[in-house]
Design a protein around this nucleic acid. Structure first.
Lengths: 334, 334
DNA sequence: CTTCTTGTTGTAATCGTTTACACTTCTTTT
DNA sequence: AAAAGAAGTGTAAACGATTACAACAAGAAG
């Protein structure tokens, strides 16, 4: 492996000049520039990024923390992020926290160890104070989770309100007995959504049966297993609200398996509008988030922070949209 | 930000000793070790990974190149990889080549610039000779693509044979008029699958209508658009073979949209057995690849290479499995 | 009481870049 | 023709860790 010295020697100049060419500095004569470029080609020289990063303490890498890989909900978000950062020479690295706080905490050391220039997290399973500490010290953007206390760079829809709205939609259809499927309590956005659900029922004075509020892994399997168990215990409800589309789809499969058809015997709604939701049969009523825009805005904020902007301590709330499809039906009990 | 000097000073030792503690070297007395650990805590010291990486020329990062993010087919593979590399202290970084050869080529510079210790690619859209060059110089494992010429570390199922088999299955059901949906020709595995399809028909002397062989983006939308266009042109076929499950599902939706039911009016088979395939209605007949094992074996091979093993120049072919579900039916034309 | 080990610590070189500063040469200005 | 400025290039000091080697002290062996 050749290094900058080899190139300098080959071109008959000093390493400083070679470095200037690498940086595209204008203060090199065209003649020497050519000579150096030829030397670079001849030696098949690639600057050692490890050395460059070390010297400049910059990596042009951005870390994206997702709660899980393979959830299509994030695909469009990632595309949005890339559309912003790639033109600036940044590259994104995607890792999964598997929703585990301990694992997510360990990921922040990547930042403390200077392996990436900034982080956008969609997981944010850590306590607000911890997040706050990191965000105050390093470029960190928290997306898809609204943190009210201690305000910092923060992009999300209002999960609580959206959940309130979609629950309300079912209430308006006349439903009275609800089942709620929540994702893991480690991920605060699931708690926000559950809260919105509770508030909607409370406002209408509809009783909440705590036995019908389930915590599950946010996967199809998680929804399926929990709902099937519930049904086997003889639980009765006419509507099911899920904190995520995967959960909702798992629930529908369990209902079908149990012999109950959706929506005619039970309405089901989800959250996120993943790709599968429009393809699944029955197609899923859900909350659509502006995924691409979430990606774009969080990336823009992060680049600002990396550029040296002080954390703006502002929360950015984006719009969401209720998507009414087949799974909620227009079924009115009694 | 404190550095190793600060810690040394704070603990009243030399930086060498601090470094030894960081490395977990046994030749430090417990007394000083404690003193140093306290200093580290007191100063909230984090070793600068940029400097460490630079000095050791190692990153403990492994790059995974996927043709696309958000394809659930890879989720299990990634889990397999992590199960092997995480215990060894390695971390995986996932990037998408978007199936573009130019973009994939640029990713290899990450390796040349020493930003990762090795690469596992599932994209491999580059010419065999180019891949060969990289693989000879650096730790590179090519997965899910079988390269016959120039043999190097290389894990895959026999795409051609699997495609042959599943086509044969349809032939045995009596089908005679086939449509084939291929993924982009840039990705060789799609070419292998198409080849298997062709060979199966040829062997039975079933005519191939080139107009019924389509190239599309390997997404649901891609399958849907192309098949709908074909149907609108009045094409007739009793069976459709797709080079990927997403394509197959898109195709089924197009068929349904056109008023043709699957499987009773047209049999459809896919490839990969993604999560959606068993959930979709009708559930999809497809080829299951041993995803976790693919991940594990490629990771093991890569770690060997990183450890200094010479490229074994061996191809490892894993088993696949035909998964017969609803979408292929038992429909026998005429 | 030397001498040799053994265990622990320190000194200093090193990795491959970037960049402030100094220096040369050449052009422009007076 | 001398002075000043501009343009191009080189010298050398960083950046923060690792590690070969030297050095020293204390205990063991002679």
């Amino acid at each position: 492996m050749s290094n900058i010295h080899d190139v300098a020697q080959c071109a008959g100049v000093s390493i400083a000049t070679v470095s200037r060419v690498l940086q595209g500095s204008p203060k090199v004569s065209p003649k020497t520039r050519n000579r150096i470029n030829e030397a670079i080609k001849e030696l098949n020289y690639h600057p050692n990024k490890l050395a460059q990063n070390f010297r400049t303490q910059k990596t042009y890498n951005i870390l994206i923390i997702l709660p899980e890989l393979g959830n299509t909900f994030y695909t469009e978000i990632l595309a949005g992020i890339e559309s912003v950062v790639n033109p600036q020479g940044y590259r994104i690295l995607v890792v999964s926290s598997h929703g585990q706080p301990a694992l997510e905490a360990s990921l922040y050391s990547i930042l403390e160890e200077k392996q990436v220039d900034g982080i956008i997290t969609f997981s944010a399973s850590l306590p607000a104070e911890t997040m706050y500490q990191y965000a105050n010290q390093y470029p960190v953007v928290i997306a898809c989770r609204r943190i009210q206390e201690g305000n910092f760079s923060n992009i999300a829809i209002d999960n609580e309100k959206a959940s309130f709205d979609i629950t309300n939609y079912l209430l308006n259809l006349g439903h009275k007995r609800f089942c709620y499927l929540a994702g893991p309590s480690e991920l605060p956005l699931y708690n926000d959504r559950l809260l919105g659900f509770r508030k909607a029922l409370k406002k209408r004075n509809v009783a909440i049966d705590e036995n019908l509020i389930l915590r599950c892994e946010s996967t199809i399997q998680g929804g399926y297993d929990n709902v099937l168990k519930l049904l086997n215990r003889g639980a009765r409800f006419s509507a099911l609200v899920a904190g995520g589309d995967t959960l909702a789809i798992g629930a529908i499969r369990a209902l079908n398996r149990f012999g109950r058809s959706v929506p005619s015997e039970c309405a089901v709604v989800g959250f996120d509008d993943i790709e599968l939701s429009s393809i699944f049969s029955p197609s899923l009523t859900t909350v659509r988030q502006p995924q691409r825009e979430i990606g774009i805005r969080s990336a823009e904020q992060l680049l600002d922070l990396i550029g040296g902007a002080k954390p703006t301590f502002s929360t950015e709330i984006l719009d969401y949209e209720l998507v009414i499809r087949e799974s909620s039906g227009d079924f009115r009990p009694e």
